[in-house]
Amino acid sequence: MGSNEWREWHLTPDGWVAGTFKYDGGCKSVPVPDNRVLTCVYGETIEPGYTAWAGVGKSEIDFSNNISVKWNCSDIQVIYTLLEKFGFCPKRLEA
């Protein structure tokens, strides 16, 4: 059975800000920035490879369906402008 890890990312006028995350069965709440215009969730599923079951090798990461939009403001033009400037949601768990 795999481990589902995720992190919220908030798009602000200053760029992407790391938010609440879940690693290794624990969750840490991070305050949401007041100036966010978009919140996405990036997730990874860590699946043990067949060699990992034997205690050899590394876990495999499944990157399918790994970004979802959780919240957005009503000003779509501001969102698009900031996405052009800073790119789409970071594809990583680390801040």
Score class of each variant (00 low, 15 high):
14 D>Y: 09
94 E>L: 10
88 F>W: 05
19 G>P: 00
92 R>F: 10
80 Y>E: 11
44 E>R: 07
22 K>I: 02
19 G>Q: 03
52 A>R: 12
32 V>P: 01
33 P>R: 00
84 E>P: 02
15 G>S: 09
82 L>K: 05
8 E>K: 10
78 V>S: 03
36 R>M: 09
34 D>P: 03
58 K>P: 10
31 P>M: 08
56 V>H: 12
6 W>K: 04
77 Q>R: 13
38 L>D: 03
64 S>V: 07
46 I>G: 02
89 C>P: 02
18 A>V: 14
67 I>E: 02
24 D>A: 11
75 D>N: 12
34 D>I: 01
53 W>M: 11
66 N>G: 12
22 K>V: 05
49 G>R: 06
9 W>Q: 00
65 N>W: 07
53 W>S: 09
74 S>D: 14
48 P>L: 11
37 V>C: 08
23 Y>Q: 10
36 R>P: 08
23 Y>T: 09
93 L>H: 01
56 V>F: 12
90 P>Q: 04
26 G>P: 07
11 L>C: 10
95 A>I: 11
68 S>R: 14
14 D>A: 11
38 L>R: 00
82 L>S: 02
82 L>Q: 04
61 I>L: 14
62 D>A: 04
93 L>K: 00
38 L>P: 01
39 T>M: 14
91 K>C: 06
3 S>W: 14
35 N>P: 06
91 K>A: 06
6 W>A: 13
19 G>C: 03
83 L>N: 00
24 D>V: 08
54 A>I: 04
61 I>R: 15
15 G>R: 05
8 E>N: 14
5 E>W: 07
36 R>H: 12
84 E>D: 14
39 T>I: 15
70 K>M: 09
66 N>W: 02
15 G>L: 06
95 A>Y: 04
21 F>Q: 00
25 G>K: 06
47 E>I: 15
39 T>E: 07
32 V>L: 04
56 V>M: 14
76 I>S: 02
87 G>V: 10
86 F>V: 07
71 W>Q: 06
66 N>P: 00
3 S>T: 12
76 I>T: 11
79 I>N: 05
25 G>S: 13
